[in-house]
């Protein structure tokens, strides 16, 4: 296709680029300008040029650490939950594949707010804990507003994003590879470890990035399922803009957030490259 359409048609990229510039690049520039300003006496923003806001961030590392901790943990658990399911759908489900995939996606397409809110009832003491008490499993189980609830919320909301790339990687895996491995006498576990797992690694990394990035900006899950006791970057930003109305400090925190995100992505991409390289050279062929 490339050479067939005249060069003038490259102009058709213009609207998208213009849109990006006007509604993304320009606002981010404004964000930077605001981040070197000062807070107005009634809140908001007053002009200025100072890096104090960035220095102040040093005193506000807690939400950053907290966010990193929970996002990494949440992503890891999501991976553990998603991988076997992706494997089952891709390798074992046969003709039901599409239906099973659609079933993973359906909940994802209904209001996240409502689904997450439903969990507050399921995890509250009249929900799951009450059922378990009735069965005599546990006496006083507290689930709502715990780190467990936050991780559960992450897994629940981001499972499809983790599952799809892994599924794709596993789906593309040629069954003859596994057959070959078995013909060569490798056991089931060995085949999984030496063939399936390495070849699906790029999907795993892709899925992890897909989950990690939006989770880091999460606002609703810590509010609804964490009871506001765990403070994420998203909550810190919302508070700085909507409660304390310290826009310059909020802007500086947002700037730091973007940097952090970029760093994580660079590392993630590098890992993905190495893994896919390893997958190529390490394959039994």
């Amino acid at each position: 296709m490339p050479k067939l359409i005249p060069r003038a048609s490259t102009l058709s990229t213009a609207p998208a680029v213009a849109w990006f510039v006007v509604f993304m690049v320009a606002p981010l520039t404004v964000l930077f300008v605001v981040s070197v300003g000062v807070r107005g006496p009634d809140g908001g923003y007053a002009g200025g040029f100072t890096f104090d806001n960035y220095l102040e961030l040093g005193n506000r590392l807690a939400p950053i650490w907290n966010t990193l901790k929970f996002s990494l943990l949440g992503t890891a658990v999501t991976l553990l939950v998603a991988y076997p399911l992706a494997y089952y759908i891709a390798v074992k489900a046969g003709r039901r594949k599409l239906v099973l995939l659609a079933l993973v996606i359906v909940p994802f397409w209904t209001s996240m707010l409502i689904r997450t809110y439903a969990w507050t009832f399921l995890l509250g003491s009249n929900g799951l804990p009450a059922v378990l008490r009735e069965w005599g499993v546990v006496d006083d189980l507290r689930l709502l507003n715990t780190p467990f609830a936050i991780v559960l919320g992450i897994v629940y909301n981001y499972l499809p994003l983790m599952l799809l790339p892994i599924y794709v990687a596993l789906e593309r895996l040629d069954p003859s590879l596994r057959a070959a491995s078995k013909d060569l006498g490798a056991g089931r576990l060995a085949t999984f470890r030496q063939v399936t797992l390495p070849l699906s690694a790029p999907g795993v990394v892709g899925g992890c990035l897909l989950v990690l990035i939006p989770v880091m900006g999460e606002y609703l899950i810590p509010v609804l399922l964490g009871g506001g006791r765990s403070y994420f970057l998203g909550n810190a930003l919302a508070d700085l803009f909507l409660q304390s109305r310290n826009w310059p400090l909020g802007a500086a925190l947002a700037g730091a957030f973007i940097l952090l995100m970029t760093a994580i992505l660079l590392v993630g991409t590098a890992v993905a490259r190495r893994l896919s390289g390893a997958a190529t050279t390490g394959s039994p062929a």
Binding site: T120, G124, S125, G127, G227
Partner: peptide, 20 residues
């Protein structure tokens, strides 16, 4: 006392109504 609190949230009703 933060670790002893149930929530820091303006959405106080559900927790009370559920008995949490």
């Amino acid at each position: 006392m933060k670790s002893k609190l149930f929530a820091i949230s303006s959405d106080v009703q559900p927790g009370l109504r559920n008995g949490d």
